[in-house]
Simulated assay, not measured.
Amino acid sequence: MSFEAIVDDYIREYRPSARGELAEFRKLRSLKDAIRYANLCHWLPSEKRHPHQYRIPAAALLMSRASFSASATV
Protein backbone atom coordinates (compact mmCIF):
# COMPACT_ATOMS: atom_id res chain seq x y z
CA MET A 1 0.00 0.00 0.00
CA SER A 2 1.42 3.40 -0.95
CA PHE A 3 1.75 6.33 1.41
CA GLU A 4 -0.87 8.18 -0.63
CA ALA A 5 -3.30 5.28 -0.23
CA ILE A 6 -2.72 5.24 3.54
CA VAL A 7 -3.42 8.97 3.77
CA ASP A 8 -6.53 8.64 1.60
CA ASP A 9 -7.76 5.81 3.81
CA TYR A 10 -7.22 7.89 6.95
CA ILE A 11 -9.07 10.85 5.46
CA ARG A 12 -11.99 8.66 4.45
CA GLU A 13 -12.21 6.55 7.62
CA TYR A 14 -10.96 8.66 10.53
CA ARG A 15 -11.04 12.36 9.72
CA PRO A 16 -14.80 12.86 10.28
CA SER A 17 -14.57 11.34 13.76
CA ALA A 18 -11.45 13.33 14.63
CA ARG A 19 -13.10 16.56 13.52
CA GLY A 20 -16.16 15.76 15.59
CA GLU A 21 -14.03 15.15 18.65
CA LEU A 22 -12.18 18.44 18.18
CA ALA A 23 -15.52 20.25 17.83
CA GLU A 24 -16.61 18.81 21.18
CA PHE A 25 -13.41 20.03 22.85
CA ARG A 26 -14.08 23.52 21.47
CA LYS A 27 -17.42 23.57 23.30
CA LEU A 28 -15.75 23.25 26.71
CA ARG A 29 -15.64 26.34 28.92
CA SER A 30 -11.90 26.44 29.46
CA LEU A 31 -8.54 25.00 28.52
CA LYS A 32 -8.43 23.47 32.00
CA ASP A 33 -11.63 21.50 31.25
CA ALA A 34 -10.21 20.33 27.91
CA ILE A 35 -7.02 19.14 29.61
CA ARG A 36 -9.04 17.28 32.26
CA TYR A 37 -11.04 15.41 29.63
CA ALA A 38 -7.98 14.64 27.54
CA ASN A 39 -5.93 13.52 30.51
CA LEU A 40 -8.62 11.11 31.65
CA CYS A 41 -8.95 9.79 28.06
CA HIS A 42 -12.61 10.75 27.90
CA TRP A 43 -14.58 10.88 24.72
CA LEU A 44 -16.80 13.91 24.53
CA PRO A 45 -19.67 14.31 25.14
CA SER A 46 -20.23 10.79 26.53
CA GLU A 47 -17.30 10.96 28.99
CA LYS A 48 -16.62 7.28 28.36
CA ARG A 49 -13.00 6.32 27.97
CA HIS A 50 -11.51 5.98 24.49
CA PRO A 51 -11.60 2.30 23.47
CA HIS A 52 -7.82 2.12 23.02
CA GLN A 53 -7.32 3.46 26.56
CA TYR A 54 -9.29 0.88 28.56
CA ARG A 55 -6.20 -1.00 29.71
CA ILE A 56 -4.78 2.00 31.54
CA PRO A 57 -5.86 1.74 35.19
CA ALA A 58 -8.03 4.64 36.38
CA ALA A 59 -5.61 5.21 39.25
CA ALA A 60 -2.76 5.76 36.77
CA LEU A 61 -4.83 8.31 34.84
CA LEU A 62 -5.67 10.15 38.05
CA MET A 63 -2.01 10.18 39.11
CA SER A 64 -1.06 11.48 35.69
CA ARG A 65 -3.71 14.17 35.93
CA ALA A 66 -2.49 15.25 39.36
CA SER A 67 1.11 15.36 38.17
CA PHE A 68 0.19 17.34 35.08
CA SER A 69 -1.98 19.75 37.03
CA ALA A 70 0.82 20.39 39.50
CA SER A 71 3.25 21.28 36.73
CA ALA A 72 0.87 23.15 34.40
CA THR A 73 -0.04 26.78 34.69
CA VAL A 74 -3.47 26.68 33.13
Rank of each mutant, 00 (worst) to 15 (best):
A66C: 07
L22F: 11
C41F: 05
Y10L: 03
A60S: 07
E21C: 09
A23T: 09
L22P: 05
A70W: 00
L22H: 10
Y10S: 01
V74L: 02
A23C: 12
A34S: 15
D8A: 15
A38F: 13
D8K: 13
P16V: 02
S69D: 05
R49D: 02
T73D: 10
S71F: 03
A38T: 11
R29G: 03
R15Y: 14
G20R: 00
P45Q: 10
F68K: 00
P16N: 07
H42A: 12
D9Y: 12
S69R: 01
K32S: 14
L28G: 03
F25N: 03
L22W: 11
H52D: 11
E24Q: 13
F25W: 12
I56S: 02
I6P: 01
D8I: 10
D8T: 12
R19K: 14
I56T: 07
A66E: 02
L62D: 04
N39A: 08
K27N: 08
H42T: 10
R29T: 04
E4D: 15
D8Q: 14
L28Y: 11
G20A: 05
L44N: 01
E47W: 10
F25K: 01
K27R: 10
Y14H: 11
S30W: 08
D8C: 11
D8S: 15
T73V: 08
A60V: 00
E24M: 09
E21F: 09
M1G: 10
R15W: 13
F68P: 00
A34I: 06
P16A: 01
D33C: 06
P51S: 06
P51E: 08
Y54V: 14
A34T: 13
S2V: 07
I11L: 15
M1C: 11
N39I: 00
P57F: 04
R36W: 05
R26T: 01
S69Q: 04
S46V: 12
V74E: 00
S2Q: 14
Y54P: 04
H50D: 09
R65C: 02
S69W: 00
A59H: 07
R55M: 04
S30Q: 04
I56M: 05
W43K: 12
I11R: 15
E47I: 13
L40C: 13
F68R: 06
S67L: 01
K27L: 01
S30N: 06
K48Q: 14
Y10K: 05
R26Y: 13
A58M: 07
A70D: 06
R49Y: 01
V7I: 15
L40D: 03
R12A: 14
E47F: 13
D33Y: 08
M1A: 11
I35M: 08
L44C: 08
A38H: 11
V7D: 10
L31M: 11
L31A: 11
E21I: 03
W43M: 15
L61E: 04
D33K: 12
V7F: 12
S67R: 00
Y37H: 13
L22I: 10
K48Y: 11
S64F: 04
